[in-house]
């Protein structure tokens, strides 16, 4: 079952690639057919990805080391792709602006592609990870990250489609508002992620906050988005600056997620045993 789940994950990766290409075609050729095809393929990818994650969960229980599939970089990347696709599709359903897909869905593909370079085997949980807070922490954090990912995709789209030239146009205003809305979703979930993380840290390490690099970078990300939300109340920060800000914020998210593990050391490095 583990092998089946892994095979599905490979297939899903290329399905996201196909969806990305279709969304790009939709954007380039302004063709409805491509748009419908892109949405259909993305929905299919999300459905099958859900199945693969459930299979992996079941497989871990069959191996006698059952745990939610959110325990290492591989599993988090797979779940990150899931959250990006899910949040994007919700936005697509409410706005029908499929061009966003050309910017958002490639992020899901890249996350899956990165996962494929890693060891997919299911491993038992380290004692520090054996906590009910693991699930709450990972789900809130990654839904938050995905909110920020989609807002960055919207920011990129804002800049790439030249909205800055006419920031008062209806389309530019809708995009600007969507960037704000997705940042709000990401911000609330990131806050919840930091809170669940500190509750967990308090029971695992005996301190709710230890200025560990991962914690600090999540706070840096939080501060950057908090300032973005406050910039909304200052004149001249809508539109282009908002779009750029959403990209900078997502840069912080990526560093919190990958950079800290790769470049800095701390408590979150589960590569080495206790």
């Amino acid at each position: 079952m583990e092998a089946l789940s892994n095979q599905i994950l490979v297939a899903v990766t290329f399905t996201f690639l196909a969806a990305s290409v279709l969304y790009l075609c939709h954007w380039a050729f302004k063709s409805k057919v491509f748009g419908w095809a892109a949405s259909g393929v993305t929905w299919a990818a999300l459905g099958v990805l859900t199945l693969a994650i459930v299979l992996r969960w079941v497989a871990s229980h069959q191996m006698g080391i059952g745990h939610a599939p959110f325990s290492n970089l591989f599993e988090s990347l797979v779940f990150f792709a899931w959250t990006i696709a899910a949040i994007y599709l919700i936005i697509e359903l409410s706005t029908w602006m499929r061009t966003i897909g050309a910017f958002a869905v490639p992020l899901a593909f890249l996350s899956m592609l990165y996962a494929l370079t890693l060891d997919p085997s299911i491993k038992p949980l380290l004692p520090a990870l054996k906590s009910n807070w693991l699930i709450a922490h990972v789900i809130t954090c990654f839904l938050g990250y995905a909110g920020f990912a989609v807002s960055a995709a919207l920011g990129a789209m804002y800049l790439a489609t030249g909205q800055a030239k006419d920031p008062a146009s209806p389309r530019a205003l809708v995009l600007d508002n969507l960037i704000y809305q997705t940042v709000v979703v990401g911000f609330i979930l990131l806050t919840a992620g930091i809170v669940t993380g500190s509750i967990w840290a308090n029971s695992a390490w005996g301190t709710y906050w230890s200025w560990d690099p991962k914690e600090t970078w999540s706070l840096i990300t939080w501060l950057v988005y908090a300032s973005l939300l406050h910039s909304r109340f200052m004149r001249g920060w809508q539109g282009k600056r908002m779009a750029v800000f959403s990209l900078v914020g997502f840069g912080c998210v990526l560093f919190t997620y990958f950079g800290v593990n790769l470049l800095l050391s701390g408590l979150h490095s589960y590569a080495t045993g206790k």
Partner: peptide, 10 residues
């Protein structure tokens, strides 16, 4: 000021 302080702390 809030905007500036939040970014400065970051």
């Amino acid at each position: 000021l809030s905007f500036f302080l939040l970014l400065l702390l970051a």
